[in-house]
């Protein structure tokens, strides 16, 4: 299954992912109309700024997800096959247990209703809206093996380069 990975050195803090996320979760699915909608469309990922680094944080759809375990009403559930954690607003009572147990703090709140909102991995799209929106490709939608494989190739190249340099010295 594909996951949304973050290339930690790439984020420039433009917040394009946040806007695209809110628009994708609007009725109109278009920015110009979405900004006038009620309820206000909510973003489900967060660009954080800490230690002078910019970083988009979003639901990791954890295995054995704490938010699902903590949810008393069954609003949070994890798909048996895709492992995507989704939230059913009709079952949510706004107790915020999910928010309390989420290790990344990425369960948000809908402004008008006392209920949670979170990443649903854009079920209507082939590629999640935040990934498409990212102008620097800091967000990558890929199989774990594909992403890790890329990282390994870079690491391997560096190791080999270091080895070759050491040999020649």
């Amino acid at each position: 299954m594909k996951e949304i990975f973050v290339r930690l050195d790439r984020c420039v803090g433009c917040h394009a992912c946040e806007l695209a996320c809110a628009v994708e979760h609007s009725v109109a699915k278009h920015l110009f109309a979405a900004i006038a909608e009620t309820p206000v469309p909510r973003k489900r990922l967060y660009v954080e700024y800490i230690l002078q680094r910019k970083l988009p944080l979003l639901c990791r759809h954890c295995e054995d997800a704490p938010c699902v375990r903590a949810c008393r009403t069954g609003a949070m559930s994890q798909d048996a096959l895709t492992r995507i954690v989704t939230h059913d607003p009709d079952k949510c009572i706004g107790c915020w247990m999910c928010t309390m147990v989420c290790p990344y703090g990425v369960v948000g709140r809908q402004l008008e209703r006392r209920i949670a909102v979170k990443c649903d991995r854009c079920p209507d799209l082939d590629v999640p809206a935040c990934v498409t929106a990212c102008p620097t490709k800091a967000l990558v939608y890929a199989e774990e093996e594909e992403f890790a494989g890329g990282v390994r190739r870079v690491a391997a190249a560096e190791v080999v380069e270091g080895y070759v340099t050491a040999q020649t010295v």
């Binding site: 433009c14 695209a20 110009f32 900004i35 206000v40």
Partner: peptide, 25 residues
Amino acid sequence: CGFGELGVCCRHCNMGPCRIDPFGE
């Protein structure tokens, strides 16, 4: 860029660049 499309990005001084969240969050 959605902020640019909406005109809510300001680069007129170096306290910025500043942007306004069109969704109010």
